[in-house]
Structures are given as C-alpha cells and as structure tokens.
C-alpha cells in the first residue's frame, strides 16, 4: 500500500491521531502532525512512498506539531520531536515541512549505527553505484538531482549507507532539499522535475524539495555495489576537470566524510578499505551541469566496459 491509496482526509486523521507510517528504504518512520501545510505537502510529496503496516518496528517516532499555548496562535511555531522528546528550538510554522525533512535525516545520521553512514550522494546504473562524498556547499545535491533526472537511479542525496555484512549500498531515496541558486538551476535543467514550494529564510537559506523520480522510490529495497568514488566541487566558471586521485587520499576523504566512522571501529576501516579498493577514485570540478554529466557518463561507460 502506498500513501496515495488513502484519501487526504484519512491521511490528515492519521497524522493527527495514530500517526502516518512511511517507509524510506530500510527505515520506517511514524509521523504525527497537526499542521495543515504539513499534511498537504506530505500528501503531495510522499504519495508514492510505501506505507508501513504498523506491525513493523518503527525506527523513529517523529512529531512536527503546533505548541500548546500562545505560540499556537501568535506568530505560530512548530515543534519537532523524536520519540516524544523535543530536540530543537521551535521553527516558524511555515518552516514545519523542511524541519520535518531535515529532522528525519538528523535522526538517521545520529542513530543508524548499524550501518556505516557516509556523507555522500549515491546514484546507480546497471547495478553499479557512484558515491559523491562532499562537504556542504560543494554541489553534491545539485549534481545528484541532475543525474537522477538523466537516467541514474537515486539511492540518496545525503547518505551513503553501507551495509556491514557485504559492503552494499542501501537506498534511502528521500526528498532532495535544494538550496538557494540550485533551485532555479534544477528548474531549468529538468523542467519535468517535481519541485515543491520554496521556503525562504530557513536556517539553510531558501530551500525547495525535489521528489525523486518514481523508479528510485519503487526500487528503494534494491541495494547497489559501490563502483566509483567521485569527489565533486562546484566552482563558478571553473573549467571541467575530472582527475584520478590516489586511493590513500580517497580513503581519508571518505573516512573523514563519514557520520559514524569512529563509532563502528574496525568495521568502518574494513568497509572503507574494501570500498576504496573496489572503486575508481576521481575528483570532479565543475561549473556546468551538462558538461559534468557528460563527463560522468563517459567515465562510467569506460569503467563499466
């Protein structure tokens, strides 16, 4: 069953009462909300995501709700909670949806220590995945969004989730939060992309969410094998440069970009070593998305042959 299989009325009731159970890859989240804009956007963006039955183990019990008291009415706020605990300062109610999206990612990043979590976008084609580990602002999400609207499958724009048992990458195809100038860049690059409203003045500037293509959501249980590590960096007006880098350097860049390398101890060491051994490692400097995608296609075609 998918979210769209229930009416908006039922969805709103679920959000307000028993909670809406949503599956994001291997994670199941229960969401509570009494904020109308949240139910509208959940209905819009999550329509084709699978519902969980309610019998499954819930990874995170999330709330994004109006506070009691004055702030429910006067300059209204929204409160994000995890397992019944308030974790952050209140958000303006108009930022409730981006807070929900960001908060779910925060839960994963701080709790999912059964997996090695790399700060990386991941896309896949023909069973082989590219990881794009990068620091914030390096153009990872923009590049990833362009790729998934150019024939690649999205595993994640934020998490390289590595399964310790076999080193495979687990998908978690959540909404992609584009920021500031990237929003218009993607609107122009892919006019068919499903992009939500822009939220102005959030803690990350202007944010607009892109829903992953349907195929990425339908295949959220299909892992992929890491095959390329590409460290992207967007620099205005820079000529395209895609260059191999030493594997020792790639190891350090992956390990230092991880959310929990230190938590998993020797397991992390083994997983990153295997990943770097099995991947071609490159840096990519780009300013033009079309050039970057063409170069990535060429690189991966050669690597795949």
């Amino acid at each position: 069953m998918r979210i769209a299989d229930q009416s908006i009325k039922v969805l709103e009731d679920n959000l307000k009462n028993c909670g809406l159970y949503v599956k994001f890859g291997s994670f199941t989240v229960r969401i509570h909300s009494d904020i109308p804009s949240v139910s509208e956007l959940v209905n819009h963006f999550y329509a084709i995501y699978p519902c969980a039955s309610g019998d499954e183990i819930i990874d995170f019990h999330i709330g994004i709700e109006k506070p009691k008291g004055l702030r429910r009415w006067y300059r209204p706020q929204s409160l994000f909670s995890v397992d019944g605990r308030l974790t952050f300062q209140p958000y303006p109610v108009e930022h409730a949806f981006p807070a929900l999206e960001w908060g779910i990612n925060w839960c994963i990043a701080t709790r999912a220590h059964h997996l090695l979590m790399l700060h990386s976008a991941v896309v896949e084609r023909n069973g082989n995945a590219i990881l794009f580990p990068a620091w914030p602002g390096h153009g990872k999400s923009t590049l990833c969004t362009a790729l998934v609207h150019s024939g690649w499958r999205l595993l994640s724009d934020e998490f390289g989730l590595v399964r310790p048992e076999d080193g495979q990458l687990l998908p978690i195809p959540r909404l992609i939060p584009l920021k500031n100038e990237s929003i218009d860049v993607i609107r122009q690059f892919s006019p068919g992309a499903i992009i939500g409203p822009s939220f102005y003045g959030t803690r990350k500037g202007t944010v607009a969410h892109v829903r992953p293509p349907e195929d990425s959501i339908y295949r959220m249980d299909e892992p992929a094998k890491p095959r390329w590590l590409i460290f992207p960096r967007w620099i205005a007006n820079a000529p395209l440069r895609i260059e191999p880098i030493p594997k020792s350097q790639a190891f350090l860049m992956v390990a230092t970009n991880s959310f929990n390398y230190d938590v998993l101890d020797q397991t992390s060491y083994r997983l990153v070593t295997d990943m770097v051994n099995n991947c071609d490692c490159h840096t990519l400097v780009y300013s033009d998305l079309y050039e970057a995608i063409s170069a990535i296609d060429d690189l991966t075609r050669i690597g795949h042959e």
């Binding site: 020792s248 350090l252 390990a255 020797q266 060491y269």
Partner: peptide
C-alpha cells in the same frame, strides 16, 4: 594493528586506540 597499502601509503587500524592512521 591491521594494515592496508594504498599507493605508497599505509592505512593502519590500531585496535587498542580504535584509531586509523596514515
């Protein structure tokens, strides 16, 4: 310690400290 050679460098895992060294 566990060691893996990449290029001319060695990535070392030290179980006693749980640190990784180059």
């Amino acid at each position: 310690i566990v060691s893996h050679e990449f290029d001319d460098f060695y990535i070392i895992y030290q179980p006693s400290s749980t640190e990784t060294h180059v």
